[in-house]
């Protein structure tokens, strides 16, 4: 996956900034939209080099569709995680069985790895401790499988099928 052209990266950065501006002001007054566009152009010119590597390639329909499908999936995993935490905290015996396990991932892209680490942190009973290459060290509150393969099967696999399409 090579880098996209500078123009495409620049346009993508400006678009993102402009959408955030529209959300923050939440008004379509032409004066505000115009000043937002100007600031998006300036800030985009200063920051597009660190912001994105792929430019407009991020907006391909397949990626956007998978991303939209990922949102409810992720929110549901998050709600499950919180009910799980509530159960462990409120249960009088405090049923925890913690440990640090290792997982492997098939993702190679840095942004994809960040998204996977964030997803792991917010889902049932796991929190990312460190990432080294393609090895994830994860603190698991209820260790069910100590081996690398078993833990990957339970922790990283469910997200990878979405994140592979979105970020690779």
């Amino acid at each position: 996956m090579g880098e996209a052209s500078r123009i495409s990266r620049y346009i993508y950065t400006v678009l993102t900034l402009f959408v955030i501006w529209l959300f923050l002001t939440s008004s379509f007054d032409p004066q505000e939209v115009a000043i937002g566009a100007i600031f998006a152009l300036i800030v985009g010119a200063l920051t597009y080099e660190v912001f994105t590597e792929r430019g407009l390639g991020n907006l391909s329909p397949k990626r956007v569709l998978y991303f939209i499908a990922y949102i409810p999936y992720f929110l549901w995993a998050m709600i499950k995680a919180n009910l799980d935490v509530a159960y462990r905290v409120l249960h009088p015996k405090r049923p925890i069985n913690p440990g640090i396990v290792e997982c492997k991932t098939v993702l190679t892209n840095n942004v994809g790895k960040l998204a996977l680490a964030n997803s792991i942190t917010l889902t049932p009973g796991t929190i990312t401790l460190d990432v080294k290459g393609n090895r994830y060290f994860i603190h698991w509150i209820d260790v069910k499988d100590e081996s690398v393969e078993g833990a990957s099967e339970k922790i990283t696999k469910p997200f990878e099928k979405f994140l592979k399409v979105i970020f690779e």
Binding site: P98, G99, I100, V101, E102, K132, R135, F137, V148
Partner: peptide, 12 residues
């Protein structure tokens, strides 16, 4: 915690 089961990070 002393009840922890494994520590793969230390091994690594």
């Amino acid at each position: 915690w002393e009840g922890s089961v494994v520590d793969k990070y230390k091994e690594a």
